[in-house]
């Protein structure tokens, strides 16, 4: 943990500018992944629409800054609130259905968000997106924007970590394992799922807002369902049953897509092959796979020393 944070702190001194912005992207994707994974891995709710809420966060910041000239802090802080409100409305409908119907509902809502962004020229600038968003100059000094993202992502991921390890997180996992039984012990299942949906939306909104600050522009594509599948892949790559899964997944995913796309235009092909391999042979993702290996290795070691009896 400490090692990782140290490495992340000295990144701007060691790596080139482009590498730093790549890591910045990874951080934001890691946050989005963790936010999604609260639903996916802990709640067992497969959402196809995280990008919709991510885009709501990004556009909230962008519109407040460009249209209303709001102070930067206000624009950034408003993003998660707006995303959470939208998430509450969308989630209220979605948690009424489960499995494939839940997934299709989230997909439909995200596509509606995309349509609104795409069509409402007067407010969102439509498919032109919003460019040259006035970001405070101070963030462009040195690597300030990187530290800005790092600080916010670190705090958010810590909060998410506390949430999944709280009684709330445990209840959520119980719902994932068996919703009916959980209902029988007097847990209001839907209310918990809605809460997970709103919390997830809140953090997706932060991730969107951070990306808006980082990129200085927003586009309707942020809400598109392909972006949602990106986030799902990030979670799966790392492993959805480990908290660190999406964080590792984000790093690997962005690295893979950038490295392969630099060498060939057919990077999606190779990404697809990697995903197929992952689904067929490493179902718990990379972190899950590593954890299992370490566990086995420890057991072996323990048995060798005559300590591990079980």
């Amino acid at each position: 943990m400490i090692l990782v944070s140290l490495v992340l702190l000295i990144v701007p001194f060691v790596f080139s500018r482009s590498m730093v912005s790549l890591i910045n992207e990874m951080l934001i994707m890691a946050l989005a992944g963790c936010a999604l994974n609260l639903m996916l891995g802990y709640g067992g709710m497969v959402s196809f629409g995280p990008a919709g809420l991510y885009a709501v966060g990004a556009y909230a910041t962008a519109i407040l800054l460009t249209r209303y000239g709001a102070p930067f802090i206000v624009a950034v802080l408003a993003a998660p609130v707006v995303a959470a409100i939208v998430g509450a409305i969308v989630g209220w409908f979605c948690v009424r259905r489960s499995a494939v119907y839940f997934a299709l509902l989230t997909l439909a809502f995200a596509q509606i968000i995309w349509t609104i962004i795409f069509e409402w020229y007067d407010f969102t600038n439509g498919d032109n997106g919003i460019v040259s968003i006035p970001i405070p100059e101070v963030l462009y000094v040195g690597s300030n924007i990187y530290y800005f993202s790092l600080a916010i992502v670190a705090v958010c991921i810590f909060v998410l970590w506390r949430i999944v390890n709280s009684p709330f997180g445990a209840t959520l996992q119980a719902i994932r394992e068996n919703p009916m039984r959980t209902e029988f012990i007097a847990v209001p299942v839907r209310r918990y799922q809605l809460a997970a949906f709103v919390i997830s939306s809140f953090f997706l909104g932060i991730a969107g807002s951070l990306f808006c600050v980082f990129a200085g522009s927003v586009f309707p594509d942020y809400a598109h369902w392909v972006k949602s599948t990106d986030m799902l892949v990030v979670c799966l790559l790392g492993g959805i049953y480990n908290f660190a899964g999406p964080i590792v997944g984000s790093g690997v995913y962005i690295l893979i897509s950038k490295v392969i796309s630099k060498n060939t235009t057919y990077w999606m092909f190779f990404l697809g092959i990697i995903i197929v391999f992952l689904v067929l042979y490493m179902r718990n993702g990379m972190v899950g796979f590593a954890a299992e290996k370490i566990f086995r290795f420890r057991n072996k070691l323990g048995a060798g020393n005559g300590e591990g009896k079980s």
Partner: peptide
């Protein structure tokens, strides 16, 4: 979830 992701991977592979 694994079905989704596997068929999504097929989109990437077939598309490219």
């Amino acid at each position: 979830l694994y079905q989704y992701i596997l068929t999504f991977a097929l989109i990437l592979i077939l598309g490219d």
